[in-house]
Design a protein around this nucleic acid. Structure first.
Lengths: 133, 133
DNA sequence: GCTTGACTTAGAGCACGCTCTAACTTGTAG
DNA sequence: CTACAAGTTAGAGCGTGCTCTAAGTCAAGC
């Protein structure tokens, strides 16, 4: 540690750490995906490591395809405190089931694509042979 | 068969069969995802069963998350004829690998969600017990 | 004192993938 | 003859999720 305070990060550092742009970080805060970030005296944002943890989790929700509106609901419940835990668990359960269903669908589509790739590859191979004869 | 021609379908029937709206069917044709559909004397579209087959395939590509621009390229290659088969196979191979990677990612996210669900469920269960004591 | 650069805000703009509207034609039923 | 249903086109509009711009503040270095 270089000083006695907890390590606070600038928006640029958080952008680098999370791979979000500074624009997107401010946007997420504006729409309530991220709680209002603490400010330094000059009104610049100062992020904590807990903030980064939350953002990382958000990015995981996003990667599952959860729409922003739903993430907003989740974030709001989180801010309301521990008594909303059951509702958040319900949301996560629904997400889990959605995700399972979507993965199953994608696996079905993957099967079809694999089949087409091998079938068409065979067609190409046969045609190439003919040309060689 | 009610007549000697191949069975042709109206746009409405195709919309019902594919679950696309008539708007979307026309839109897909306009942007080249679907080749120009044959017309009846009154200029109404008449779809063949092969057209439906192509649309079903398109919907599968769409369901894999392939962007419209790429589907346009694929559709154009298809229209150019058999000699583009190798290029189409390359596209499908890339899609296959993408899909495999995305499914892996989703499975990772699913693990996390499952973990959170069971962890938080446990927290709730413990708190509920305490209340009962 | 002046420039540079990192930050701030409010709000405009954009890419994607539809989705709908307006105005019109055509065929069928009463 | 009229009304209605189903189709047509060109083009406008919309929801999502960013992404960028303009105008300004502020601190540090020359």
């Amino acid at each position: 540690m270089t000083n006695g305070h907890k390590q606070l990060l600038t928006i640029k550092q958080v952008a680098e750490a999370t791979k979000l742009s500074v624009h997107t970080l401010r946007y997420y805060e504006r729409i309530g995906l991220i709680h209002p970030i603490e400010r330094a005296d000059n009104s610049h944002r100062r992020y904590t490591h807990e903030d980064i943890g939350w953002i990382d989790f958000l990015l995981k929700l996003r990667a599952t395809g959860m729409p922003i509106h739903e993430m907003q609901v989740y974030a709001e419940l989180q801010r309301e405190g521990d008594h909303t835990l059951p509702q958040r668990v319900e949301m996560l359960k629904r997400l889990q089931h959605d995700l399972e269903a979507r993965i199953d669908d994608l696996n079905e589509h993957l099967k079809l694509i694999r089949y087409k790739v091998s079938f068409y590859s065979e067609v190409i191979a046969v045609n190439t042979e003919k040309e060689l004869v």
